[in-house]
Simulated scan of single mutants.
Amino acid sequence: MPPIPPLFVLPVPPSVATSSTQNQQGEFICTQPSPQVYLLSFSYPPDNRLTPAFNQSFLLALDIIEHRLPRGVVITTSTISKFYSNGLDFENAIRDPTFFPSSLFPLWRRLVTYPMPTVALMNGHAFAGGLMTAMMHDYRIMNPHKGFVCLNELDFGAALQPAMASVFRVKLNMTTFRNMVLESRRFPALEALKEGIIDGVGDVDETLAFIGEMKLTQKAQGASYGKIKEEMYREVVKDLDEGPDTPKTLTARDLDRNRRDSEAKKRVDEYQAVLRRAKL
């Protein structure tokens, strides 16, 4: 297949707020491999971290496709062969109080309510926030030869915010979700397909065939497509919209957890005191 000229190219500037390894400029390139199918390929070395600059370019690319191009299907993928996305630049994300409510959650909300079909073509690893981003798409296709999908927050001590967890509760069965979050299990493509995490395996050609078989380009013409998604995923949308209140919610949970922990320790102390008196 000859090179496909891009419909547009958006730069992703390096950010001084990111880690020292995420200091190269990236880009989003939109091509049209098939009529009314838009392949949005991103590259943000070394592993497509979800930084504010990356998220803003992603959001703008989705806006351009919706408002400047005929309605169709959006495929997102990475041109970095090893990674679809390795998730957040975690240390900087948690230091920035605006990151979740003003950068990450608006991108996820845009994806989960996008008024056209979206397909995440996971060419490589999709870890943590990278997998969450893929889950905000309507469909997922995964490279059958390499890469894992994984929620590994347990491994680096991160909690799941409500807006991070709800999309998995809505789209997966609870046993699969449990294995993902409480075991940090890594799913290769065929296992992910069996568990319903992805909808198919392959590369661009197989994704285009999937779009054709599902008649997604035709479905994209429905004026109510986005509205239906807003209702179908209303729990996810609600948690994303309430993102600014998440710190208060988590603080209240911490206080309640500490209270219950203190009560549990008190019960243990009282029990041990009874044992000591019984020995006298």
Rank of each mutant, 00 (worst) to 15 (best):
T251C: 11
E191Q: 10
P13I: 11
F100R: 00
S166N: 11
R178S: 00
L154S: 00
S20C: 11
N258A: 11
G130Q: 10
D239N: 08
L193W: 13
D155N: 11
L255A: 10
M232I: 11
T118S: 04
I94Q: 08
R140N: 13
G124C: 06
D63A: 06
V149M: 08
D155E: 14
D239G: 03
E242K: 02
P162K: 01
E231I: 11
P45V: 13
I80H: 02
G157Q: 03
V237S: 05
N258D: 14
L7M: 08
S184A: 10
T246R: 02
A126M: 00
A278D: 07
A128T: 02
S166P: 09
E66W: 12
H145C: 03
G130N: 05
I197H: 02
K227V: 12
H137I: 04
D261M: 09
S85F: 15
L182W: 07
A223K: 07
R71E: 14
G26Y: 14
G212I: 09
I65P: 01
P244A: 02
M1I: 09
T217H: 08
G147L: 08
V73E: 05
A53R: 04
G196A: 07
F148R: 00
G212C: 01
A53Y: 09
K219G: 06
M132H: 01
R95Y: 10
P45I: 07
K219F: 09
A61S: 12
N173P: 12
V37T: 05
Y233F: 15
G212M: 06
Q32I: 06
P33R: 00
V204L: 15
P106L: 00
P5C: 06
E153W: 03
G157N: 06
D261E: 10
L240C: 04
L7E: 13
T21A: 14
L69P: 05
A165G: 13
T51E: 02
G72D: 06
R259Y: 14
E231N: 07
T207V: 08
K265G: 05
R68I: 06
Y225I: 09
L151E: 00
M214A: 13
A61N: 02
N55I: 15
G72I: 14
V236G: 04
V149C: 01
S85N: 03
P6V: 06
Y271V: 03
V12A: 01
V181R: 01
N123G: 04
L7S: 01
A209R: 10
R68G: 05
K227Q: 11
A273V: 01
I29V: 15
S166Q: 15
A165N: 09
L280H: 05
S262H: 08
S102G: 06
A223E: 14
A93W: 02
K82L: 12
K82T: 13
N152Y: 04
K229N: 04
I141N: 07
N123I: 15
